[in-house]
């Protein structure tokens, strides 16, 4: 899902058949862009639900798209991942095939999938934004650790609040502070 002008052929016939995973990535990218034929879109959507590799791919594509639109702070390895994605993106100098008979249900399905993926992201601790879904498990452990680490500070601060209540659960994200020198 690049914003660089390229043309994409979803079902190449004259080229050598791409590797299995490359084809999956191509289909996912085309799905997000609404450029996948209906039958292939349905297959791909079903696969996303059951395939961790597909989930990781779609998370990557959404991350890259969001970062390019300036919607979020990219993770540390962002540049490497973008360069890899660009390298793997086939550029075919031919008119792009447009599916002419798209049904609205495909758009709804794609939008729903995107919304679900986005929802999963949002419901996870904030610092996991931009991390592929497959990588969420270890990040949750980090979040729990940060919660534990913050408890002594919260307890000490309670001296100055009206609290007799226990420390609340915290969510963490990376912060960008503009420091005046």
């Amino acid at each position: 899902m690049k914003h660089i002008e390229t043309t994409r052929q979803t079902m190449p016939t004259t080229q050598a058949q791409p590797a299995h995973e490359d084809m999956l990535a191509l289909n996912l990218s085309a799905l997000i862009d609404g450029e996948l034929p209906d039958n292939l879109a349905n297959q791909t959507l079903k696969r996303i639900g059951n395939d961790a590799v597909a989930q990781a791919h779609i998370a990557d594509f959404l991350t890259i798209g969001d970062a390019m639109r300036g919607l979020s702070t990219p993770p540390g390895d962002f540049t490497d991942r973008v360069m890899l994605a660009l390298k793997n993106e086939p550029v075919i100098l031919a008119p792009m095939h447009k599916a002419s008979n798209r049904r609205p249900v495909l758009w709804l399905a794609a939008a729903a999938m995107t919304a679900i993926t986005w929802g999963l992201w949002q419901s996870s601790p904030n610092h996991d934004v931009n991390v592929p879904l497959a990588a969420l498990k270890p990040a949750d452990t980090q979040s729990a650790q940060r919660n534990t680490d913050s408890l002594p500070y919260l307890a000490a601060h309670q001296d100055f609040t009206q609290a007799v209540v226990s420390a609340p659960e915290m969510h963490f994200s990376n912060a960008s502070l503009e420091i005046r020198q």
């Binding site: 904030n126 610092h127 940060r146 913050s150 500070y153 919260l154 601060h157 609340p168 659960e169 915290m170 969510h171 963490f172 994200s173 990376n174 912060a175 960008s176 502070l177």
Partner: peptide, 27 residues
């Protein structure tokens, strides 16, 4: 690295950053 925290209800805000040789936690 600067880390920002917020309680579930948004009641408490918190940030951790490095200032010279010190770690500063503000909440």
């Amino acid at each position: 690295s600067s880390v920002r925290g917020q309680s579930k209800q948004g009641m408490i805000n918190m940030v951790t950053r490095q200032v010279g040789p010190m770690q500063a936690t503000i909440l």
